[in-house]
Computed example of a mutant assay.
Amino acid sequence: MPIYIDDSVHSYWQGWDNGGNKILRTFCLDGSPPAFYMDRGFGEGAQSWMIHLSGGGWCRDVRECQNRSTTSFGSSKHMPPFKFRGHFSNNKNANPDLFNWNKVMVAYCDGGAFTGDVETVDPATNLHFRGARIFSAVMEDLLSKGLKDAKNALLIGSSAGAYPAMLYCDRFSKLLPNTPRLKCLTDSGYFINVNKNLQKGKGFKTIYKALVTLHGSAKALPKSCTSRMKPELCFFPQNMQQYIKTPLYTIMSPFDIVQVETSLGDYYNANKQNNCSANQKKNLRELRLELLSKFPNASDTKSRGAFIDSQFHHARLQSYWNPQNVSVVNNVTMIKAFGDWYFDRQYYYLIDKHDLPIP
């Protein structure tokens, strides 16, 4: 089991083999135990849970992963204290729907979007690719800590953590068959496989192919997808979302910094200075249209919701879940739109009409 970090608890659970000996099968890249941070709920939120899979890019070759293994993104030995803010805030005014929930941030230390599953460890590198097992271990531990009795539950993922939040959404639901309200949320991770004529950067297909190969991720992907296309293509939400049965909300911008820089090249800095060329603006408009064309169908906004703004940013939940600095579409804030959708007060599928980034 992972390290459990809160104000006072640091516990390890390693499991047992058939001979009754302790073993550890779940690891960060460097072989240290994975970890999560937890802030207990209170009052009416004591039986409500949000579990957030952290993001932080990917490592796609041995050298990248070795470098990562010496940081908090690859080792629990280097993880700093975590500040619960944004959608984790206990401030009722800033976070009216979720302020008193149990809040869990699952640290991202495997480099493979919680999908790796390789048993063999090369002694020359000591790299462990077992991200899929981290998700399973964390869920098992949290169930014993009260998650099994949840009345409300929410699985969240941001950036590189957004894809596994979608991938494991239905599994999360099956773990909690008696939870009345359970939904999933992905933030700033609906990266698309853009057409070749538009692509100016290296593209996500190249990234995902290397990731799947190194981390052995194919085993974690649904056979309903991998039986139809190559595993790396199943890393794209556009090819996965139709298989998800659990209600799913997506927060994304067509001008997400990571999407733009990966697919179109380094346009972000140019646009930041308000000097994009006419051709760059054309490409940004085309990118927006392509993203929207690959989004879930808006006809059923009870099981699918979305908040699509037109700003240059990335992974907003912690930094933008703030009344003074939050995205707004059609006079509705991101906080209100998601909260209303989650609690079935109103079904929001909001798409900003601006076809270029808002300054």
Results as ranks from 00 to 15, higher is better:
333 T>V: 12
345 R>C: 06
330 N>R: 07
330 N>T: 02
322 N>M: 00
332 V>G: 02
319 S>H: 15
315 A>D: 12
348 Y>R: 03
352 D>F: 02
337 A>W: 04
307 F>G: 01
318 Q>V: 14
335 I>D: 02
315 A>V: 12
330 N>G: 02
315 A>W: 01
356 L>G: 02
354 H>E: 13
317 L>V: 13
339 G>I: 09
310 S>T: 14
323 P>T: 15
313 H>C: 13
344 D>M: 08
338 F>L: 07
320 Y>M: 08
315 A>M: 06
325 N>L: 12
336 K>N: 11
329 V>G: 08
354 H>Q: 13
322 N>C: 05
335 I>S: 04
318 Q>W: 06
320 Y>N: 13
320 Y>G: 05
317 L>S: 04
324 Q>E: 12
321 W>N: 01
349 Y>R: 07
312 F>L: 09
306 A>T: 11
340 D>W: 07
309 D>H: 03
325 N>M: 11
341 W>V: 10
320 Y>L: 06
322 N>E: 13
311 Q>I: 13
330 N>C: 01
338 F>A: 04
341 W>C: 11
349 Y>F: 15
332 V>F: 08
337 A>Y: 00
349 Y>P: 10
350 L>I: 06
338 F>M: 09
352 D>V: 00
351 I>E: 00
326 V>K: 05
357 P>L: 01
342 Y>I: 04
338 F>S: 04
346 Q>F: 01
353 K>P: 01
339 G>P: 10
311 Q>L: 10
337 A>R: 01
331 N>T: 10
340 D>I: 11
313 H>Y: 15
330 N>I: 03
308 I>V: 14
328 V>T: 04
321 W>K: 01
357 P>T: 07
356 L>T: 09
335 I>C: 02
356 L>C: 08
344 D>E: 12
328 V>P: 02
320 Y>A: 06
328 V>Q: 03
352 D>G: 04
351 I>M: 07
313 H>G: 13
343 F>W: 07
343 F>T: 15
312 F>C: 05
339 G>L: 09
309 D>C: 08
357 P>V: 00
340 D>S: 12
311 Q>K: 06
331 N>Q: 14
329 V>D: 08
319 S>R: 15
336 K>P: 04
351 I>T: 04
325 N>C: 07
308 I>D: 03
327 S>L: 08
341 W>D: 06
306 A>D: 09
334 M>N: 03
334 M>A: 07
336 K>D: 08
310 S>L: 09
344 D>H: 12
332 V>K: 00
343 F>K: 15
324 Q>V: 11
351 I>F: 02
322 N>L: 02
356 L>F: 11
348 Y>S: 00
317 L>T: 07
349 Y>Q: 08
327 S>N: 12
356 L>V: 10
310 S>M: 08
352 D>C: 05
357 P>I: 01
343 F>R: 13
319 S>G: 15
326 V>I: 14
347 Y>K: 15
347 Y>M: 09
333 T>I: 10
336 K>E: 05
311 Q>N: 05
327 S>G: 12
307 F>T: 02
334 M>R: 06
310 S>R: 09
333 T>E: 06
346 Q>L: 05
306 A>S: 15
323 P>Q: 15
328 V>E: 00
340 D>Q: 15
322 N>W: 05
334 M>T: 05
335 I>E: 01
356 L>M: 09
316 R>F: 01
328 V>F: 02
328 V>Y: 00
349 Y>A: 11
321 W>F: 15
317 L>M: 13
323 P>V: 14
319 S>F: 09
316 R>A: 05
345 R>T: 13
